[in-house]
Measured scan of single mutants.
Amino acid sequence: QTQEFDNEEEARKAEKELRKENRRVTVTQENGRWRVTWD
């Protein structure tokens, strides 16, 4: 699953929550947008 964010702060917040659920999370930056991908 993927979700896009406008800034790193929001993306990192989402990453932190997903990691609490023991998910594999990848955060990438593309064209000024932050993308959080998880399984």
Score class of each variant (00 low, 15 high):
Ala11Phe: 02
Glu30Gly: 04
Asp6Met: 07
Val25Thr: 04
Glu21Met: 15
Val36His: 01
Glu30Gln: 10
Thr26Lys: 07
Asn31Leu: 06
Glu9Gly: 08
Ala11Asn: 00
Arg35Asp: 01
Ala14Met: 14
Glu30Asn: 07
Leu18Gln: 03
Asn31Met: 07
Arg35Ser: 05
Asp6Pro: 06
Glu17His: 09
Lys16Met: 14
Thr26Leu: 09
Glu30Met: 13
Glu17Ser: 09
Gln3Asn: 05
Arg23Ala: 13
Val25Cys: 05
Gln29Pro: 06
Trp34Asp: 00
Asp39Met: 11
Glu8Tyr: 07
Arg35His: 06
Arg23Cys: 10
Glu8Val: 03
Trp38Val: 11
Arg33Leu: 10
Thr28Ala: 06
Gln1Ile: 11
Arg12Leu: 08
Gly32Trp: 02
Glu4Thr: 13
Glu15Phe: 10
Arg24Ser: 12
Arg12Tyr: 08
Lys13Tyr: 11
Glu30Arg: 07
Arg19Gly: 05
Lys16Leu: 13
Phe5Arg: 00
Ala14Ile: 12
Glu15Val: 10
Glu15Asp: 02
Glu4Gln: 06
Phe5Glu: 00
Val25His: 01
Trp38Gly: 03
Arg19Cys: 08
Arg12Met: 08
Val27Glu: 00
Trp38Leu: 05
Glu10Thr: 05
Gln3Val: 12
Ala11Asp: 01
Thr37Cys: 10
Glu9Val: 09
Lys20Glu: 10
Gln3Tyr: 14
Gln3Lys: 13
Glu9Ser: 09
Glu10Phe: 04
Asp6Ile: 05
Asn31Ala: 07
Glu30Ala: 10
Asn31Glu: 08
Glu21Trp: 13
Ala14Lys: 15
Gln1Asp: 09
Gln3Pro: 02
Glu30Leu: 12
Glu30Thr: 10
Gln1Met: 13
Gln29Cys: 10
Arg33Asn: 05
Gly32Asp: 05
Arg12Ala: 03
Arg12Gln: 04
Arg19Trp: 13
Arg19Pro: 02
Arg23Asn: 14
Thr2Trp: 15
Gln3Phe: 15
Glu8Ser: 02
Ala11Met: 02
Ala14Ser: 06
Glu21Thr: 14
Thr2Cys: 14
Glu15Tyr: 11
Lys16Gln: 13
Thr2Asn: 06
Arg12Phe: 05
Gln3Cys: 13
Arg24Pro: 07
Trp38His: 05
Gly32Glu: 04
Lys16Glu: 11
Leu18His: 09
Lys16Thr: 11
Lys16Trp: 14
Glu21Ile: 13
Glu17Gly: 06
Glu8Trp: 05
Asn31Gln: 07
Glu17Pro: 02
Trp34Lys: 00
Val25Ile: 06
Arg19Tyr: 06
Val27Ser: 02
Arg12Asp: 02
Arg23Gln: 11
Arg19His: 06
Gln3Thr: 07
Lys13Pro: 01
Glu9Arg: 08
Trp34Ile: 01
Val36Gly: 00
Thr2Glu: 09
Arg33Pro: 01
Gln29Ser: 09
Gln29Gly: 06
Glu30Lys: 08
Gln1Phe: 15
Glu4Lys: 03
Trp38Asp: 04
Glu17Ala: 13
Asp39Trp: 15
Leu18Ser: 03
Arg35Phe: 15
Gly32Thr: 04
Arg24Ile: 14
Asp39Glu: 15
Trp38Ser: 07
Thr37Gln: 10
Val25Ala: 04
Glu10Gly: 05
Asp6Ser: 08
Phe5Ser: 01
Arg33Val: 12
Leu18Glu: 02
Asn22Pro: 03
Trp38Ala: 08
Ala11Val: 03
Val36Asn: 00
Lys20His: 10
Glu17Lys: 11
Glu4Ser: 09
Gln1Ser: 11
Val36Asp: 00
Glu4Ala: 05
Asp6Ala: 08
Thr2Ala: 08
Gln29Asp: 04
Phe5Asn: 01
Ala14Tyr: 15
Thr2Arg: 06
Lys16Asp: 10
Val27Leu: 08
Asp39Tyr: 15
Ala14Val: 14
Trp38Glu: 05
Arg23Trp: 15
Arg19Glu: 08
Lys13Gln: 12
Lys13Phe: 11
Thr2Ile: 12
Trp38Ile: 10
Glu10Tyr: 04
Thr28Glu: 07
Arg35Cys: 05
Arg33Tyr: 08
Trp38Tyr: 09
